[in-house]
Nucleic acid binder design. Structure first.
Lengths: 215, 215
DNA sequence: AAGAGGCCGTGCAAATTTTCACAAGAATTA
DNA sequence: TAATTCTTGTGAAAATTTGCACGGCCTCTT
């Protein structure tokens, strides 16, 4: 199955939606809902029901006709598809306000993501230990520490000016995926996966909406 | 012009890209670049040059054939389109690690966004003043304070369980746009704009990529 | 002043993504 | 067992989005 999937192209939006479905299913499981139909799930997610069924169809058949989907089962299938049946090791560069908040964020751990190393350039910070336990390393040691700890995902929470440099270090140390909070477009080689989290882009969307919606 | 635009449908992705162009243009202005061609800008943004020209074409003609775009001029036009020629007033609910980081984040101010009020439910927090100056109000006073201060955008940084409640309060007080950091799909009435910032969705994309790219 | 080279704006085709609509399978009832 | 009622999985159509390719305008050179 995996080997087939690997060559068929699945839209990025589908993966994003799978992730959203999993959030909804988690909530449903919490409420002790056993079975759900695509219509109901769609309503919860604000998505067309056919879309849900089609997204799932890329990966197999998980429902029962006339019945729906078993919540727990579907959740677990989606998590398997996304690759969440393991703990992913992350490293963070940039221990500012945002960086600290990220490390302290408990959602990550619940979802199977863990910060195993943190870095900064500020000599005043290097060597200190965070409340969550990690010792702050200097960015110059990134390559060494990343390899030692087997980091798989790099997280960049530096100011914009330092972000590309951080990216280069991650690239050099063999990390293949980067989550970037800096408001710039990182230049990375083919095959690297980069996801940007840019609050101000989202705010700009809202500002545009408000501006257009005005009377 | 505005009144024409209001009825023609512009794709949400276009707005998002405009926002990205503006980040790139800001960087170029910083480097004192005066003029840029769509090809160069496209390269910087990782986007097709025709796409850029087409996105801009929704709103007018901003370039000079045979020459390119004046960086500062185009930047200012895009900012005008997005509605950034004013300061937007935001309110934050949820003064946890993430909330604190957001309030302290200097990028917002630079981009024309300002937190004019902050809220929490924790009695231990209510009444205290943040380093950035805002006094923490109780969420029960949200309606009153939001109306007093003329808040236009609500930001939710609560745990998932409290997010829908926060949204209801914003809706009730007449706020028409919400930036949601909680990992749930908010239920809101027609006409409200909601943008979600969900780190773990982005991480799931990376996890999927890494899983699929494996040998 | 004419010619050459560069780049924007845009019609049109291609590709992608979403949505519809229905056959097929599962449970429930008579 | 047959009829009824659900809801999935999926082809095919519709809608949207992207990318090409070229006419037209601008500047610079000769």
């Amino acid at each position: 199955m995996r080997s087939i999937m690997k060559f068929s192209k699945i839209p990025a939006v589908t993966i994003t939606r799978l992730s959203i479905y999993s959030r909804c299913l988690e909530a449903l499981a919490q409420e002790d809902v056993k079975i759900i139909a695509s219509d109901k799930l769609a309503q919860k997610c604000g998505i067309n029901p056919a879309q849900i069924r089609k997204d799932l169809a890329y990966f197999g058949e998980f429902g029962i006709r006339g019945v729906g989907y078993f919540v727990k089962e579907l959740l677990s299938e989606i998590q398997r598809i996304l690759g969440l049946n393991k703990t992913w090791k992350m490293a963070l560069v940039g221990i500012g306000n945002l960086g600290l908040a990220l490390v302290a964020h408990e959602n990550f751990v619940r979802q199977g993501y863990e910060f195993v190393a943190v870095f900064d350039v500020d000599p005043a910070k290097v060597g200190r230990r965070l409340p969550s336990g990690q010792i702050i390393h200097h960015v110059d040691d990134l390559d060494k520490v990343v390899k030692e700890k087997g980091v798989e995902i790099g997280v960049i929470a530096t100011p914009a000016g330092k972000a590309q440099n951080a990216a280069h270090r991650f690239i050099g140390s063999g990390v293949k995926a980067i989550l970037n909070f800096a408001p710039i477009q990182l230049q990375v080689p083919e095959g690297m996966a980069v996801e940007n989290v840019d609050f101000t882009v989202k705010l700009d969307n809202l500002a545009y909406h408000l501006t257009m919606a005005e009377p």
